[in-house]
Every structure is written in structure tokens, then in C-alpha cells.
């Protein structure tokens, strides 16, 4: 007997569909946690070699990010310490003038300084101290003794109630021949501008590292999806939601991000400590040594700085799980 029916239909006979929690689905947290806590192992095959290579690449990115953050913190703290020291002091310079006694010049300068409000203390550098300051440039010996060396008065100012520098400078220059006031403000401005530029550069480096890491994760996720096409197809056909598949992929990238971030912090800290040790013993030239001393001795990254380095593994994990999730969901939206 032959029969023909108008449509192809299969009638409903069984239970209703499972409803998933909408919120968890939207962020993928439930599937990620389920994938991370499952004891059955991953549904996706392990990719030991490619996973290891990816971990090395992302670890390198994290290491560079840690170095950039350490540099940023050191520049900030060193400049802050240095500028606050400089800002507390000004210097009166007294050049030798023919026919005038240096002692008289110093006395007059001292009188003006003592009568100026906003000055906490003054300290006159002796001739020997002034000569010592010049030694690195001119060398020691009898040459310096014959030179007319200016004398310096170090003036500590009251930061809460600073003096009027313009008026003080005017009084010094008009009342004492050869006197001048150096407020260090020009140097302070220059070093602050340089430090700001360096910090901006380090932030730019961090941004570049983040963008590169995102690009690497996108590429790796696409590769993982392509190599697991058959697995993903079977998962779909047995009824897996896109969020489930995304959770499986995310869990893999979560571990890569976490491991890489921690490697980056450990190796970054080791580099910081090693360079700190080198700065005190092995670095060759005096200039290089003083550069390292400026960074390492005037400040350390401190406890908060050290804790701040852990933003790297956190960021690496966030970059890994969000990038991989977006790629997976986009790719899956193109298949049935």
C-alpha cells in the first residue's frame, strides 16, 4: 500500500527542553566554571605542543608587561622623591667679584635670607665643600686652589609658607654684587617632562603588549577551533549549546593566561632583583651606575607596586577568556 502525506513531520512525544540561566549564558561564567571544575577532563583534545608554544609566547608578553609596569613605578617614585627633595631647597650662588670680600658677600646674603619670611634654615658651604663639588669635572690638585670658586648657600624653605622667590632674587642681585638665586625650578620642570614622557612610553608599550596578546589569542582560538572542527560538530549534534563549547575553549585559554601571567611576574621580579644587584656591583661606567642608583636606591617598587604586578596575570586571564569567547561565539554563529 502506498501513501503520501503533505509534509514531513515528527510529532512531539517527550519532555520539554532544558532552560539555562540567561545571565550565566550571556557572560559564559557558568560554562567556564563548569569546564574548569569538571573532573572528567576536557572534552576538547589536549594540544600539548601548540599549548606549550602559546604559553611561551603569552608568558613573554606578560614578562614584558611586568617590566613595563616596574619601569613605570620606578620612574614615578624616583622622580617624586627627587623632585620633593629639590623643591625643599634653593641655592644662593656668590661669585667672586674683584675688590669685594667674599666674607662680606656671605654676610650680606645671610642678612637678607634671615630677614626673608618662609625660610627655615640656611647652610653655607665651605670653600673646601665647594671645591669638592667641582672635582668630578675639573679634577683635584693645585689648579682648583688657584681658581676663583663661587660659594654656595643652601637654603631650606618652609614648604607650607614658601618665600616670594622673585622678590628674594631681586633683593639678592641688587644688593650684592655677583649674587644669584637658583630655585632649581627649570631642572625640576625638565625632569618632570622627561619622566612624564617615559611614563607615557611605558603605558604605550603596555597598550601594545595588550593588543598583541589579544591578536595572539584570537589567532590561537581560531586555530584551536579549526583543528577541533569534528569535535565541535559532534558536540553540536548531540545538543551542546554554543556557550558550552565556548566554556570548554575558554577553560583552556584561562589556564594559559593564568600560567603565563604568573611566569611573567616571577621572571619580571627576578629580572628586577638581578638588575638591582648588578647596579651595586658589576655595572661598568660611573654614569650607568648612577643611573641605576637613581632608580634602585632612591626607591623600590614597594609592597603596593609588587601587588600591582599581579594585575598582569589578572589581565592576561581576562584577555584570554574574553577574546577566546568572542571568537568562538562568532565562529559558531556561522554554522548550523
Amino acid at each position: 500500500m502506498k501513501k503520501k502525506f503533505p509534509n514531513t513531520t515528527v510529532e512531539e512525544t517527550a519532555a520539554t527542553a532544558t532552560h539555562y540561566d540567561t545571565f550565566k549564558q550571556s557572560i559564559g561564567l557558568g560554562n567556564l566554571l563548569a569546564a574548569l571544575t569538571q573532573k572528567n577532563g576536557s572534552i576538547l583534545p589536549s594540544q600539548t605542543k601548540s599549548g606549550r608554544s602559546l604559553t611561551i609566547v603569552v608568558s613573554t608578553m606578560c614578562y614584558l608587561a611586568v617590566l613595563a609596569i616596574i619601569a613605570n613605578i620606578l620612574i614615578y617614585k624616583s622622580v617624586e622623591t627627587w623632585t620633593s627633595d629639590v623643591a625643599k631647597q634653593v641655592t644662593v650662588q656668590l661669585k667672586p667679584v674683584d675688590g669685594e670680600s667674599m666674607d662680606e658677600q656671605i654676610k650680606n646674603a645671610r642678612t637678607i635670607l634671615d630677614s626673608t619670611p618662609g625660610i627655615s634654615s640656611t647652610s653655607i658651604l665651605s670653600n673646601e665643600e665647594s671645591l669638592r663639588l667641582l672635582e668630578p669635572w675639573l679634577g683635584g690638585g693645585s689648579l682648583l686652589a688657584d681658581l676663583p670658586v663661587p660659594r654656595l648657600i643652601s637654603v631650606v624653605i618652609d614648604e607650607a609658607n614658601p618665600p616670594d622667590f622673585k622678590s628674594l632674587s631681586q633683593r639678592l642681585t641688587t644688593q650684592i654684587n655677583g649674587a644669584s638665586l637658583d630655585t632649581h625650578r627649570r631642572w625640576q620642570g625638565q625632569i618632570l617632562r622627561t619622566a612624564s614622557a617615559l611614563r607615557l612610553i611605558s603605558l604605550g608599550v603596555l597598550a601594545l603588549i595588550s593588543i598583541t596578546t589579544i591578536a595572539i589569542i584570537i589567532f590561537a582560538t581560531r586555530a584551536a577551533m579549526a583543528s577541533n572542527q569534528e569535535v565541535i560538530s559532534v558536540l553540536h549534534l548531540v545538543g551542546a549549546h554554543d556557550n558550552f563549547v565556548a566554556g570548554e575553549v575558554q577553560s583552556r585559554f584561562f589556564m594559559i593566561g593564568l600560567k603565563s601571567g604568573l611566569f611573567g611576574v616571577v621572571f619580571g621580579m627576578l629580572t628586577y632583583i638581578t638588575l638591582g644587584l648588578l647596579s651595586t656591583s658589576y655595572l661598568g661606567t660611573e654614569t650607568t651606575q648612577s643611573g641605576f642608583h637613581f632608580l634602585y636606591n632612591s626607591s623600590s617598587i614597594g609592597v603596593f607596586g609588587f601587588l600591582g604586578l599581579f594585575t598582569v596575570p589578572i589581565s592576561a586571564v581576562i584577555i584570554c577568556i574574553i577574546s577566546s569567547r568572542i571568537v568562538v561565539l562568532r565562529m559558531l554563529s556561522g554554522v548550523l
Binding site: A17, T18, H236, V238, D242, S333, L336
Partner: peptide, 9 residues
């Protein structure tokens, strides 16, 4: 698409 898994199951 998002309603297909419920039927596939």
C-alpha cells in the same frame, strides 16, 4: 539557531 540544541537533545 539557539533553539536547535533543545531539539537535538
Amino acid at each position: 539557531r539557539h533553539e536547535l540544541p533543545a531539539i537535538r537533545r
